[in-house]
């Protein structure tokens, strides 16, 4: 069954939403959270999804993350129609292609940073030794080397979000979905997290789709998709992927420990 999801071909766009609808409830009580979304995201993009609450952006993220399936239209992930996949196949798709970063970090309490980061690899059936090596690599990439033994309670909010990011990227996903990753952080820490995401996007080619309602954070993305009433209202791209405006944000600068 994992073979099916792996048939996804790189020649297709990473994400292709065509007239995607998501309806909750039935008949008179039905609510259209998504009313025909069309969106194509290519590999390597850094997309900020914006919009007021109730605009459908969270529903869209859930669908992109294969946690939910559209009730209408078509969602193709690397060419594979997600609606044809079973619950287990969706889980395998998430396991092999997706990484998640949440607003509330969602780390396992009383569990070391290292074990948190290792978690996705456990489900991939990777040996303990290789898990450790890869998790250390991921922690290194988010600048938390030396803190791997700390539990979430012993880490600051910014550090916790870095652990969460390390967990999202440890399995080399095609796509990282970040749901308001800076929502619980102060502005200094927020900028640090955004710099980290930008670096991962540009340096490691990880595709990132991020929900935010802060324009300052959205400015880090190379593309901003605005949602309104369950539809894409505006889709704007920065002039160039490494536009001057953002170059001032020194991505090359070593990312300090928060």
């Amino acid at each position: 069954m994992s073979g099916r999801t792996r048939t996804g071909d790189a020649s297709f766009p990473l994400i292709e939403l065509r007239d995607v609808e998501r309806v909750y409830g039935k008949a008179e009580t039905e609510v259209k959270a998504l009313a025909g979304v069309n969106l194509v995201i290519e590999e390597g993009e850094f997309v900020a999804v914006m919009g007021a609450s109730g605009s459908g952006k969270s529903t869209c993220m859930n669908i992109l993350g294969c946690l939910d399936v559209p009730t209408g239209g078509e969602y193709r992930f690397r060419g594979v129609d997600v609606r044809t996949l079973s619950r287990d196949q969706l889980a395998l798709l998430r396991r092999h292609y997706l990484g998640f970063v949440f607003q509330g970090f969602n780390l396992l309490a009383r569990t070391s940073a290292l074990e948190n980061v290792e978690l996705p690899l456990v489900y991939r059936g990777i040996s303990a030794r290789e898990r450790r090596a890869r998790a250390m690599g991921a922690l290194d990439r988010v600048g938390l080397l030396g803190r791997e033994k700390h539990t979430p309670a012993e880490l600051s909010g910014g550090q916790q979000q870095r652990v969460a990011i390390a967990r999202a990227i440890v399995s080399d996903p095609k796509l990282v979905l970040a749901d308001e990753p800076t929502g619980n952080l102060d502005s200094v820490k927020s900028v640090e997290i955004m710099e980290l995401l930008t670096r991962l996007n540009r340096g490691h080619g990880i595709t990132i789709v991020m929900v935010t309602h802060e324009p300052e954070m959205a400015a880090f993305a190379s593309r901003r998709v605005h949602f309104r009433d369950g539809r894409v209202e505006r889709d704007e791209r920065s002039a160039t992927s490494d536009s001057g405006a953002f170059q001032t944000l020194s991505v090359e600068q070593p990312i300090g420990t928060a």
Partner: peptide, 16 residues
């Protein structure tokens, strides 16, 4: 519950 949510999100199947 949240831990289970995370596990499911990162690709744990029901049976796991």
């Amino acid at each position: 519950t949240r831990e289970i949510g995370v596990r499911l999100a990162i690709g744990a199947r029901e049976r796991e």
